[in-house]
């Protein structure tokens, strides 16, 4: 399979710079730990926020880290799309007889993100153990679909960012700040925010569909409707569709302006 080849090439390429990869991995784990520490400090002072304690927040943090790092690892091509255009690499992709999305996926694979994926999973497990969930088959299924939905939503955001950078050529902070900011602010239950903001992050950019809602179902949050929370990841995953449509329209525009 072609993707396998891309994967091996990226492996070989990053092993040429083992030391650098190690450093980047190290610094990323370092950042994660600092961020966990910040959350921990807040809970040290205030103990709860809404109905959430430290470990519920830690679970959400674990989920976000995992899905965000998986997406960054495999879909970095969208995230760095402005670079792809500026360097002329995108022109190169357009003259290959392979689907353009497939090639963008293949254009960047960042091995150094692996450290953060592992950390995210470890943090999720620690949190789940500490919360003491009564496991059922449904809860396991919801947890799995949560991770999948998370990857799709973050990927969708990356794709929108890529689409926008076709118009602006600059790598906008905009998307970075949305995705990074989402990361930082979605460790906490979404109902503490203004109701319009909460709606925005449920129905427009469905962040809640892969953190607050399914986690509420798993930990048994009484403030929510269980079955709705359980299917929320499935609905949230649909976010990717409008993103792809937007991107494909943007490519058409690229082909007619050739920036």
């Amino acid at each position: 399979m072609l993707y396998n080849k891309y994967f091996k090439m990226h492996m070989k390429s990053s092993f040429e710079y083992r030391f650098n990869m190690f450093l980047i991995s190290f610094s990323q784990v370092f950042i994660c730990i600092a961020e966990i520490l910040a959350v921990w400090l807040l809970f040290q002072r205030f103990e709860t926020v809404g109905s959430w304690g430290f470990y519920e927040s830690l679970l959400m943090l674990g989920i976000i880290y995992t899905v965000y790092s998986i997406t960054e690892c495999f879909a970095r091509g969208y995230d760095e799309f402005a670079k792809l255009i500026k360097s002329g690499e995108f022109d190169r992709l357009l003259i290959r007889p392979v689907n353009i999305h497939y090639q963008i996926f293949g254009s960047r694979i960042e091995m150094s993100k692996a450290s953060r994926i592992i950390l995210g999973i470890v943090v999720s497990i620690i949190a789940l153990v500490q919360i003491g969930v009564d496991w059922t088959v449904w809860k396991v299924l919801v947890l799995i679909s949560t991770y999948l939905c998370g990857c799709l939503v973050i990927l969708g955001l990356f794709i929108i960012g890529a689409g926008i950078s076709i118009y602006t050529i600059e790598n906008l902070e905009f998307v970075n700040i949305i995705t990074n900011g989402c990361k930082e602010l979605s460790y906490y239950p979404i109902n503490i925010y203004n109701k319009w903001l909460a709606r925005f992050f449920t129905f427009i950019i469905p962040l809640a569909c892969f953190n607050y809602l399914p986690v509420s179902f798993i930990v048994g949050n009484p403030a929510t409707i269980p079955w709705l929370c359980a299917i929320s990841p499935l609905l949230g995953g649909l976010f990717i569709i409008p993103c792809l449509i937007f991107f494909n329209l943007s490519i058409k525009r690229y082909q007619s302006t050739g920036t």
């Binding site: 809404g50 906490y188 503490i192």
Partner: peptide, 11 residues
């Protein structure tokens, strides 16, 4: 705005 809501909830 988001941060203000967040810390208001904590405080």
């Amino acid at each position: 705005l988001m941060y203000i809501y967040l810390y208001t909830a904590f405080m």
